[in-house]
Design a protein around this nucleic acid. Structure first.
Lengths: 347, 347
DNA sequence: CGCCCTCATGAGATCGATCTCATCGATCAC
DNA sequence: GTGATCGATGAGATCGATCTCATGAGGGCG
């Protein structure tokens, strides 16, 4: 309510002196400082950041756009960003896009109008995003989070999705699985899902195994057993599936158990993301962990460096296999002590 | 980058006319409008919201403070707020407090300095919060979310925690449970947890049952079986527990299953919050649902009304029992067909 | 005693958009 | 033809803090 001018008047000094009292107290005589501080207290003075931002041509705000907050991956990352930003005295403007390109565009426009000092964006598909093309022409530092590097040269931070999923696949292969499927949301609508599928195929081929066609679920984070059930019976039935994200995996496990399948007895299920919750379930979720906290923190640190004109290196952040009870040896291996092969074993 | 003045110059008009071209195009002649629009396109003009905010003495921003984003209750509510705010052309500044009072204070100060038009806060304990005492004196509209009504008169939005938990308790009693416990995080550190415990005790007494002492877990959203195990054996062993939140319940179920307890066979577990994920698990989580989406939406709507000087009514929002597989009849009832009472049945 | 330097302070411009009020030309009614 | 009205436009103030530069008082030193 009260502004600097009223404080200055009450203290009997000029605006400049009042301003200095807060910005550079050592340049104000102790007596004057005291008067100004008293006046400020008396009037419950609160500096107006908007005015400061206008004058400084900098807002100390970072715009963050994530697809959704209902997926803990993004919520956890955002939490880390918020903490890191506040440590550096920055605030976050947070928006969600639901992967809708028109919303993405509107959000970015809005944030640029708001004169955020930097942008941290997670878009659906980076390489053909109209928004990003626009952004290249802007001078506001912009960092992609989770997305792969953008051909237009926008920096990106995240794990090597392809390598990570290949590694996850190899984990299952090493356990003896041969019939491994991959479960995803509709249309592989994010570039990460595509890279993960590529990693899966690569690892399968490396081992002379046939990559299976993608098993698409109608929703991104919710499994429908009907889409998978046909593949769980018969000669070449799946013994393990990889899911493109943890929520999908968790929901799939729930559906399987409700239908009296055993996990991992009948089917091993592996996730991707490593959200906290996965470890608390039974069976605990085996997953390929993205360092969400570290990604959030590093994103802010990188953006701050970019704001100061540097262009810090952006290696992939390390993914890590998180063991879990949802993955085990395939039924075939368990019966390997008997002479009969699993195919013949099942009528 | 480019400002209105450069656009005006390029178009050969005054700032005022350029400004009008965007604000009230009908008051500018078509020819001039065209010239200004061309100039704006050519210079990639983006209006500077900071300047507008300073002049308008309003930011169209709402400050949101939640304890954490790692709990889906808050993440889901925030998601709803973000959508509702954007529809009304408002942005959100989002911060997390981890229930730390000093952080709460710093955050609120920061947001007031930022001149947000309204505040939506979720604090640990509303009735003795220093922050809220400060806020009463400010003119910025402020709404408590999830917290109970504040004695100082700050409006609040959420469910009737006490009634909701009483209802949850009655649900278990109706199923035949008599030995019902309540599991909470450390120290009942939030006012909601306290009200829920009160609701539990009330319902127990109503039915002539003895409320059990609170079972405190060392962490707010993660269960440790050791704290509960002693109560699961013996004559008066618990047949059901209520948890103060869903994450705690989910983690408890995981721990129980890992220790080969059956849920709900050996112990019924009920949550509170109704987060989406609960329904996807097996057993699905029985919970008392808080309408998180509706709370988020209503919070924004209420704040917008308050910003316009109204003081809309704030009834409790309705909670709803969500059935789930994690709750069933107590073992005693299952054996009720045999003549022996459950107490004597167990050596 | 005079010169210079330092320190505290104030006057005024500035950031970029918007709002009020004045102006000017044109149209219209009488 | 002349005053009134209306529409389009511009000049200038304003929002609140900060920055630059100028001023003036006081101290140190030759």
């Amino acid at each position: 309510m009260a502004d600097l001018l009223s404080v200055a008047k009450l203290a009997g000094v000029s605006r400049a002196t009042a301003s200095r009292t807060f910005a550079t107290p050592e340049r104000v005589s102790p007596a004057t400082r005291r008067k100004v501080e008293d006046a400020a207290t008396q009037l419950a003075f609160r500096p107006n950041k908007v005015a400061r931002q206008l004058r400084a041509r900098a807002t100390k705000m970072i715009g963050v756009m994530v697809p959704s907050l209902n997926n803990p991956v993004f919520a956890e990352q955002l939490h880390a960003m918020e903490v890191a930003a506040r440590e550096a005295d920055y605030s976050l403007i947070v928006t969600t896009s639901d992967y809708d390109p028109s919303r993405e565009q509107a959000i970015v426009d809005e944030m640029l109008s708001q004169r955020v000092d930097g942008l941290a964006l997670t878009v659906a598909i980076a390489h053909d995003s109209a928004v990003l093309a626009t952004l290249k022409r802007e001078s506001t530092p912009c960092l992609l989070v989770y997305n792969p590097l953008h051909p237009g040269g926008l920096p990106a931070i995240g794990v090597d999705n392809r390598a990570a999923m290949a590694e996850a696949t190899r984990h299952l292969i090493a356990l003896g699985h041969r019939h491994i499927g991959m479960v995803a949301g509709p249309l592989l609508q994010s570039d990460r899902a595509r890279l993960r599928y590529a990693g899966y195929r690569q690892a399968m081929r490396e081992h002379g195994l046939a990559p299976q066609p993608l098993i698409e679920m109608p929703r991104h984070t919710q499994a429908e057993l009907a889409c998978l059930a046909p593949l769980l019976a018969g000669h070449n039935r799946l013994t393990a599936v990889l899911c493109t994200n943890d929520l999908l995996a968790i929901s799939l496990i729930g559906e399987l158990q409700r239908a009296k399948f055993s996990v991992p007895g009948d089917l091993s299920v592996m996730g991707f993301d490593g959200i906290d919750l996965g470890q608390r379930l039974y069976p605990s979720l085996c997953s390929m962990e993205q360092p969400r906290i570290e990604i959030g923190r590093a994103a802010i640190a990188t953006l701050l460096a970019m704001i100061q004109g540097q262009s810090p290196p952006l290696p992939f952040l390390p993914h890590a296999l998180r063991e879990g009870e949802s993955v085990g040896a395939p039924p075939a291996t368990r019966q390997a002590l008997t002479p009969r092969s699993p195919e013949r074993n099942t009528p």
